[in-house]
């Protein structure tokens, strides 16, 4: 997997958070995962096509979702309904992927994306790539967002 193709997905996440007033972010290290066990209960997966093919997954806890999206203005503070929070996760993922697409386009690569799928559950186990998955954590003031990237060579 080309490392140059990984950073736009993380940079895009950071930019979307910053643009919505979420600062004090800490980037973790890039880790190679043989299996994608997710302890966090909400995951949004987006299929990528065009110049790069693969799947990108952003995972976070329900509590992080709630606090983050209220702070970002994606949900109202009174919206505690799970379905509204989960739909906001989809909007959040689309904002990130659109930003990543812009970064790739600046570098001369056109990517397209499918609408996100949001999965909520416990003890989740994913396979988003037949080859390998690269993980990086972004620590926000409201909790961690785990970015999992599985791209085809």
């Amino acid at each position: 997997m080309n490392v140059k193709h990984l950073t736009p997905f993380v940079d895009a996440l950071v930019k979307v958070l910053n643009d919505h007033g979420i600062d004090n972010l800490k980037r973790g290290k890039l880790l190679k995962k043989d299996v994608m066990n997710v302890d966090l209960d909400v995951t949004s997966v987006v299929g990528i096509g065009g110049g790069i093919r693969g799947n990108i997954a952003y995972s976070l806890s329900s509590e992080t979702c709630r606090h983050l999206f209220v702070s970002m203005g994606l949900v109202n503070p009174s919206d505690s309904q799970r379905s509204k929070i989960l739909k906001a996760v989809g909007v959040f993922a689309e904002l990130i992927i659109n930003e990543a697409a812009r970064i790739f386009l600046d570098g001369g690569i056109l990517i397209t994306s499918a609408p996100p799928t949001i999965v909520s559950g416990n003890e989740m186990f994913f396979i988003i790539s037949p080859v390998q998955t690269i993980t990086i954590d972004i620590e926000t003031p409201y909790g961690a967002i785990e970015t999992n990237i599985g791209l085809e060579e």
Partner: peptide, 20 residues
């Protein structure tokens, strides 16, 4: 053309498919 497939399993999983 197809994107690569992804698969998951877990307890009490709910899938939300917005927009389509």
């Amino acid at each position: 053309w197809l994107s690569p497939p992804y698969i998951f399993t877990g307890k009490d999983a709910v899938i939300v498919l917005p927009r389509i």
